[in-house]
Deep mutational scan, measured.
Amino acid sequence: RERTTFTRAQLDVLEALFAKTRYPDIFMREEVALKINLPESRVQVWFKNRRAKCRQ
């Protein structure tokens, strides 16, 4: 699998959701994945990595 490159628009949507909740449930992830045209698994990993970035 190639490394996913997120567009600015995708990142804006993800960051906005992250500001609301750091742990979105499966339904929220599915919804945002459809909206920004990414698989739900990529959204899940993005959140995992974003939380890790926050902890540093």
Rank of each mutant, 00 (worst) to 15 (best):
I36H: 06
F18K: 02
K53V: 10
K48A: 13
K35W: 01
N49T: 11
V32P: 02
E2I: 05
A16L: 05
V32Q: 09
I26D: 09
D12C: 10
R3Y: 11
R22E: 15
T7S: 10
Q44T: 14
K35I: 05
L38M: 14
R51H: 00
I26Q: 10
N49G: 09
T4I: 15
Y23V: 05
Q44N: 14
R42H: 14
D25L: 05
A9Q: 15
P39D: 08
K35F: 03
R55L: 14
I36Q: 03
E2Q: 13
I26M: 05
T7W: 01
E40I: 05
R1T: 11
N37H: 10
T5S: 10
K35H: 07
K35R: 11
F47V: 03
K20N: 09
F27M: 15
P39M: 04
R42P: 01
K48D: 09
A9N: 10
A16E: 09
V13F: 04
R3W: 07
T21D: 08
W46S: 01
K35G: 08
F47R: 01
S41N: 05
I26L: 10
W46Q: 03
L38Q: 10
A16F: 02
V43T: 01
P39N: 09
L17T: 14
L34H: 11
R51L: 05
N37D: 14
I26C: 09
T21I: 07
K20G: 03
Q10S: 02
S41H: 12
T4H: 08
F27V: 13
A19D: 11
E40V: 09
V32T: 05
V45F: 14
W46T: 00
V13W: 04
R29S: 05
L38W: 11
E40R: 03
K35E: 04
Q56I: 11
E30Q: 13
K48Y: 06
E31A: 11
T4M: 13
K53M: 10
F18H: 04
K20W: 02
D12G: 07
F6I: 11
W46D: 01
L17F: 06
C54H: 10
Y23M: 07
T7P: 02
F47M: 07
E40N: 06
T4A: 06
F18L: 03
F47K: 00
R55T: 09
K20D: 05
V45G: 12
R3P: 13
C54A: 14
C54M: 15
R51F: 00
P24W: 00
R8L: 07
A9V: 12
K48L: 06
R8C: 07
A33Y: 04
I36T: 14
